[in-house]
Amino acid sequence: MAVDFGDVFDALPDACLLLSADGRFTVMAASDRQLALMRAARADVIGKPFIELLPADANVELAAAFRKVRRSLERALATGEAETLTAGKYEIVLPEEEGGGIDERYWNPRIQPVFGGDGRMACIVLKLRDVTEPIRRERELALERALAEREKMLVQKDILFREVSHRIKNSLQLVVSILNLQATAANDERIRSHLESAASRVAAITSVHERFFRTESHTAVEMSSYLRELCADIASSANNGSARWNFDVEAEALELPVDIAVPLALIVNELIINVLKHAYPGGAGPIRIALRAAEGELKLSIEDEGEVVFDRSRTGLGSRLVNALAQQIRGEIERTELAPGYRVELRLPLSS
Results as ranks from 00 to 15, higher is better:
A290C: 10
R167P: 00
R244H: 13
F9V: 03
N187T: 11
E151M: 14
S237N: 09
M223H: 04
E229N: 02
H278A: 06
E307V: 11
R190V: 15
N274T: 04
S217A: 05
H209S: 05
A2R: 11
P109N: 05
Y280A: 06
G296E: 11
I92Q: 13
A279H: 04
Q173L: 12
E295F: 02
L53S: 06
L350D: 08
R330M: 04
V176C: 13
L143H: 07
E216R: 14
I272H: 08
K48Y: 00
L18A: 11
D248G: 07
L181P: 04
I111E: 03
G318F: 09
V69M: 12
A65G: 03
R67P: 01
D130V: 10
A290L: 03
A30L: 06
R330H: 14
Y280G: 03
L291D: 12
I178T: 07
D188A: 12
F50G: 08
L271S: 07
P113D: 09
G119C: 01
P281I: 00
K127A: 11
E334W: 01
E297T: 07
V258Q: 09
K127V: 10
A87P: 01
L264G: 02
F213E: 08
L230T: 08
L172I: 13
A251D: 09
L174Y: 15
K48H: 05
L141N: 06
V249R: 03
F310S: 12
S200A: 13
A290F: 05
R292I: 02
A65I: 01
G99I: 12
E337K: 03
F310W: 07
F161M: 14
A41E: 13
G119L: 04
Q182C: 09
V131P: 13
R214E: 12
D248K: 10
A30G: 10
R67T: 08
L276N: 10
R75F: 10
L94R: 12
S165V: 10
